[in-house]
């Protein structure tokens, strides 16, 4: 942690956030917000949180900007001004200043920034750092805590992604859209409505296989380097999003049916919860992977924890990939699934 660098970046972050709220054009506000996310990613790299920075670069700056742009594209871009509404502004300013004042007063009681001896860094976090290598043989402590020690937490958060993408898919689908969806998405299409530039199509065709290969590397290599199921899944989803932006949504649907997407959305959560259930059947606790060594006696309890983590990451990656793609297709086609951005 270099405090000079971090202070500079944090000041830029506040400026970027302020500009993105202040700017009048909604598309400009969204783009500035993407820059805000990239700055946040730098801040987190500076504080030693490389996994979080990776996730933020893929999710915050990449995918959520696309979601915002899709929404602005399908609603209106300009802000309509109404008569100067003083009471709401005055009231909200008072609330915010009060909240800020009380929080500022409380700042003095927090441990200093970068204090290695504060209570946050010393109880259970210290245990993870000192024992993770012996107990699981995974050098990246973030992965071992994510997929093993706190797997219960991660399982339900994967479940939230599953439920959120199902909610978006079902609520945005129109009643007449369902018939069209049966025609367009669930069956193979013979014609493609391609109108984009040839350069973009060829370049995307060149990039997408390498992106998917890199995403698989990120998923599998998460034990030794920053990365894991969430990051790899988002990059896989982003490669499909890129393909559907360069060509057409139908082109991607011809390869991956929407039916297949929803199935893999469910299968990811099923793999995660299923491994937990197998552990329960074999006599351990829920998601206690060392019980798996009874099923595979050649692996010791450490080796089985190591391998089960990989499968859990694969499940997370499946869910996140199809979740991101389902959210993108729903938002960008406004529930019609005919053409995207």
């Amino acid at each position: 942690m270099i405090w000079q660098f971090d202070i500079l970046l944090l000041t830029l972050v506040v400026v970027c956030g302020f500009v993105s709220l202040w700017i009048k054009d909604l598309m400009g506000a969204v783009i500035v917000f993407g820059a805000y996310s990239f700055l946040m990613c730098l801040v987190w790299t500076g504080m030693g949180a490389v996994d979080v920075a990776f996730t933020e670069a893929a999710v915050g700056a990449g995918v959520s900007t696309i979601f915002f742009i899709a929404t602005v594209f399908h609603t209106s871009r300009t802000i309509r001004y109404n008569k100067w509404d003083l009471s709401t502004k005055f009231f909200s300013s008072i609330i915010c200043i009060l909240m800020g004042f009380f929080l500022m007063v409380a700042i003095g009681d927090f441990p200093a920034w970068g204090d290695a001896l504060s209570p946050v860094n010393n109880n259970v976090a210290k245990y993870y750092l000192e024992n993770s290598m012996e107990e699981t043989k995974v050098p990246n402590v973030v992965t071992s805590v994510l997929a093993d020690y706190r797997a219960f937490d991660t399982m339900f958060e994967t479940g939230v992604v599953f439920v959120a993408s199902l909610v978006i898919f079902t609520l945005l689908l129109q009643s007449d859209g369902r018939k069209k969806l049966m025609k367009s998405a669930f069956q193979k299409v013979s014609f493609l409505n391609v109108s984009e530039s040839l350069i973009i199509r060829k370049a995307c065709g060149l990039m997408v296989p390498f992106m998917q290969l890199f995403a698989l590397y990120v998923v599998v290599h998460g034990h030794y380097s920053p990365g894991g199921g969430f990051q790899g899944g988002v990059i896989l989803g982003a490669s499909l999003i890129l393909l559907s932006m360069a060509y057409d949504i139908k082109k991607v649907f011809a390869r991956f049916h929407m039916k297949f997407m929803i199935k893999s959305l469910a299968v990811g959560v099923l793999i995660f919860a299923g491994i937990g259930l197998i552990c329960l059947i074999l006599g351990g606790n829920f998601l206690d992977y060392s019980a798996l060594s009874k099923l595979f006696p050649s692996m010791g309890s450490i080796k089985s924890r190591y391998n089960a983590m990989l499968w859990v990451e694969v499940g997370v990656a499946l869910t996140v990939m199809s979740g991101m793609f389902a959210i993108y297709t729903s938002l960008s086609s406004n529930g019609k699934f005919e053409e995207g951005l």
Binding site: I199, I200, A203, C204, M207, F210
Partner: peptide, 16 residues
């Protein structure tokens, strides 16, 4: 290599 392919393509897309 990916910047060499990707960045001019993105510029072209924005220009287009």
């Amino acid at each position: 290599n990916f910047i060499f392919i990707g960045s001019p393509t993105a510029t072209h897309a924005i220009m287009d």
